[in-house]
Amino acid sequence: MYAFEIHRPTTVRQAVNLLAKNPEAKLLAGGHSLVPVMKMRLASPSALIDLSKVEGLAGVEVGSRSVTIGAMTRHRDVARSPELHQVMPALASVPDSIGDPHVRNRGTIGGSIANNDPNADYPAACLGLGATIITNKRKIPADEYFQGMFDTALEPDEIITKVSFPIAKKAGYEKFKHPASGFALVGVFVSKRSSEIRVAVTGAGANGVFRATVFEEALKKRFHPKSLDGVTLSTDEMNSDIHAGKDYRAHLVGVMARRALAKAVAG
C-alpha cells in the first residue's frame, strides 16, 4: 500500500473542503471496497477523508411515501430496520445479501453507490425503485446518476449525504450470487408504483447497472412473471468474463427477473 494522509472531518462542509483541497484524496466510508484495492496498489489516494465522524450521515427514516437512508448507514442497520421491513421488505433484503456478516457490519449504502461496482447490489435497488441520490449540492435521479462501470454523475467535490427511495407496494430483488465473492453475477430488482414499472439489472451489463426496457414494456400489460414468457434480452450489451458468458448472463437476467417478480406479486 502506498502512503497517505488521514483527515477526519466532523461536518459535511469540512469534508467537502478537504476534498476540494486534495484532488487525489478519496472518501472513506466502510472501506470494504477501497481498502482491498489500496492493498493491491490499484488505488493510491494521497489522503483518506474518513466520513465516520461526520454527524447526521447515518440512519433509516421511513416516511409516508418514501424511505430515506443516510449515506453512512451500514448494510447491517438497513437490513435490520424493523420500520423498513414493514413498508418495503424488498429493499431491506438488498443489503442483507451483500458480502458476508462482517462486510455488512462495515459497508455503507453511500460507499456502495459511490463506487458503483458493476456487480454491486445497491445500484440495482436505486435504479429499480427510481431513487434520488442526495448530495451536498443537489438531488440526482438514479436514472442520471449511474453512468457506467465504476462511473457516476458525482463531481470531484461532491459527497452523497443520503438516498431517498419512493415506497413501492410491489417490489422484489433476486440475485444469482457468485459463490466465492458473494457479488451478484446477475441481480434484478423489479418494482411497480402506480403505473411506473422498473426492472433494473446489475452484474449482467457490459457497462454497469441498466434498466431492462423490453421486460418493463412486457410487464405493462400485467405485472406478473408470466408476462415475460417468450421475452428475451439481447446479448449484445451483456458482460462476458471467466465467470459467465453473454448468453448465460442474458438467460440469468430472465430467470432472476421472474423470481423477483414472483416475490413482488406474492408480497
Binding site: I6, H32, V35, D100, N105, A180
Partner: peptide, 27 residues
Amino acid sequence: CDTSQCGACVVHVDGVALKSCTTFAWQ
C-alpha cells in the same frame, strides 16, 4: 487471505465483528 474473505482476522470492535485486515488501526 489478506483479501477480506477468509475471516481468520475477525475481532470484535464495540461488540461488532469485523475483519481486522480490512480496517485501519486509526479507524
